[in-house]
Simulated scan of single mutants.
Amino acid sequence: MEDSLQILTNASGRQMSLGDADAIKLVTVLDDPPLALATAGAYLSQVPTSLSDYLRHYEASWLKLQKTAPELTEYEDRMLYSTWQISYDHVQRQNKASAKLLQLWAYLDSQDVWLELLQHTEQDDPEWIREITEDELSFNAVVRVLCDHGLVEVDQSPVEQVESRGYSMHGCVHAWTMHVLNQKWDGGLARLALKFVGSHAPKRDKEKWWATQRRLLQHANRCSSMILKGSVAKEGMEGKIHMLGYLYADQDKLEEAEKMYERALVGYEKASGPDHTSTLNTMNNLGLLYADQGKLDGAEKMYKRALVGYEEGMGTRPYINTHHGQQLRPTL
């Protein structure tokens, strides 16, 4: 009990003691998991509300969760999700952009989201994402709101840092953003996440490209999972999917690269035709990948298709592969 009260004291900045009936009741209700206590404390540090009022909000959130997510049968899950919902509701009132970023995070990996990853916006993207990624000051201000509520924290990964330092969230919080906060799938946010990850995949001419690729890999895994499940619309995203294949190939994850290249190829053929440069580039990269996997028949088929396409479309035979810098060959 004393340890739990100390967690609340540290997180909230308020003195909690065994003589405080409301504090004892709150600790008892939250059943002593440190994560729930820390989240409640972070909320109390931001909002001038009494412990009794927080308990009232918690009970209301619990009842709402029973109706909206009846599949949550574990008591601890309901308890944690209720505390996060209270914090999210306050974040939404305080800074709508912070709340939207938390929703977007569900379609990325839980770990290491950084500014430059999201700086691939276009004019038709939502205004909130364009505003928060305008510069580091704007981005950090929005994320700080989430940090203050105990929902995310500065990433402490021991990987080599390229670009700015990122932010991470606990896996349990991420599960809540996926299954409760985004209970209704948002196809627009899913496509936005895929666009950011695919656009940020570096080629080998970028400084420290290998470090950026390693940093990006976990987000690529999240996006490829959505693609393979058919839960993100792929039309118009062929280039981003192709770049996921490129990233996987460079990271020697050949099976994952194959799946992305194959889906990009289907999309390019449908959208641009079999003789478009993008289609032929993907055929060539897929052929090289098949060769690396020992799938020689498949590799030869891709090489021949790409070669014929270039000869018919450009009237020239040689073609230099954009991925490995090797010359396309019709036979192995």
Rank of each mutant, 00 (worst) to 15 (best):
L254K: 02
Y58T: 03
T177F: 07
S12A: 09
G166I: 04
P34F: 06
P48Y: 07
G309L: 07
L307E: 09
L30A: 12
A175M: 10
P34E: 12
K259V: 13
L18N: 12
W84Q: 07
K304R: 15
V162P: 09
L146D: 14
Y319S: 10
R222G: 01
L115Y: 12
G19A: 01
D22W: 04
E238V: 11
L137S: 14
S224I: 09
Q15H: 12
L65N: 06
D32W: 02
R215H: 03
A38L: 08
Y88A: 11
V308C: 00
K100M: 11
L102I: 02
D297T: 06
E269S: 10
E71N: 02
V143N: 05
P202R: 04
A40R: 08
A21M: 11
Y261D: 06
A69F: 01
G245I: 08
A36Y: 08
M178E: 15
Q213L: 09
N95L: 12
D32Q: 12
T39I: 15
L18V: 10
N281L: 10
L51P: 01
H276W: 11
A11T: 09
R317C: 00
T39N: 15
Q46W: 05
A233W: 02
N321R: 09
W128F: 10
D3H: 13
E238F: 14
F196L: 10
L118E: 11
L194N: 05
E160H: 10
M260K: 02
E256Q: 10
A99W: 07
G236C: 07
T28C: 00
K259A: 10
E76M: 13
L247R: 08
R305W: 10
K25M: 09
M79I: 11
G41K: 07
Y167C: 06
A99P: 00
F139H: 03
M302L: 01
G13F: 07
I86D: 09
G41A: 07
V145N: 14
K67N: 13
K67V: 07
S61M: 08
H323A: 15
L216A: 05
C223D: 05
F139P: 00
H179K: 14
Q66D: 13
M302C: 13
Q326P: 00
H219M: 07
S98D: 01
E300A: 07
F196E: 02
V197N: 01
I320D: 06
K259H: 08
I7Y: 05
R165K: 09
A40E: 07
K208H: 10
D89F: 09
W209N: 10
V113P: 00
T9M: 13
D20A: 02
S61E: 11
T177H: 02
M314H: 13
Q119N: 12
M1S: 15
A38P: 00
G287I: 01
R144E: 15
I132Q: 06
L5D: 05
L35S: 06
L37N: 08
T277P: 04
K64V: 04
R215Y: 03
L30G: 11
Q161R: 15
P274H: 08
H90L: 05
A141T: 03
L117M: 15
K270P: 01
